[in-house]
Design a protein around this nucleic acid. Sequence first.
DNA 1: GGTAGACCTGGACGC
DNA 2: GCGTCCAGGTCTACC
Length: 302
Amino acid sequence: MPAILVSARKPFNFTSVINSHGWRQLAPFSYEETTNTLSYVLRLSTGRVIDLHFHDAKEGVNVQIPKLERGERTEVADKVTWMFGLDMDFSHFYAASHAEPKLLHAKKLARGRVLRSPTLFEDVLKTILTTNTLWTATRNMTLKLVNELGASTAGREKIDPPLSAMIKKAFPTPEAIAASSPEFLKEKIRVGYRAPAIHQLAVRVASGNFDLESLKTSDVPTLELRKQLLTINGVGPYAAANLLMLLGRHDFIPIDSYALKMVSNEWYRGEPITAKEVEKRFEKWGEFKGLAFWFWDWKDNG
DNA sequence: GGTAGACCTGGACGC
DNA sequence: GCGTCCAGGTCTACC
């Protein structure tokens, strides 16, 4: 199988990226622990759906791909650069955190990059699917969404049952989700009350009324970016902070029940706390607040 | 600005 | 197998 090497700005640690959060467990990602291989089913801009396998190449990411045209290879390289944040620079964060014992490992393990999907649309939807539910349900909803509405590696031709198990699917496009209905999303994908929000976002993006992908490269201040993310139904303070982290803006902390638990165990003897206490503990980290929180060496991370 | 309650799913638990 | 309870953020109404 052909392969391409996509280089990373140093320092880089493949394992740190794929372990940065739970994204590798969400379809169309999959992970094989014994070989430390991350896989992803990618839909190219031409509509072709391909299977990618990522391996550690020390100086970057080695990507196993099917035979592709030159333009397709360039597109894959660009997507991989985004997904792994290969061009990102965390030197200022490492300098700011070098004296903090709880962040000693940050530079050593090249922490800072968080695994992303190729499109912001996919990351927004996945983030909405993490809200107000348990992780197993998030995994189920994502898998159903991909299986029901995603384009397949086999194209449109009909596949016999024995072969169909080998066919993989990409994350659905905004158009595919927009063409479904809130009722379908609720009843088939089991997304519950999130159905109208998910469908509405797909319609906004598919119709061209909301250029979500442009936020990936936007240079507007973080507060303004946050404001735009909060216009999305289903995206509240937690989801917006999570998405800002994925966008490389680290001024906000995604405060969920896990954050409250960790901060409470660290500084408040496990007693009930509010978001205010979390903010207070990380206030001094300023523009690195999100990074300091995300990569903090917690006393009890169970 | 702060707070209470509804929104859903699915896992855990008791019977 | 069935019913009940509970965890998990966002949104809206209300104070």
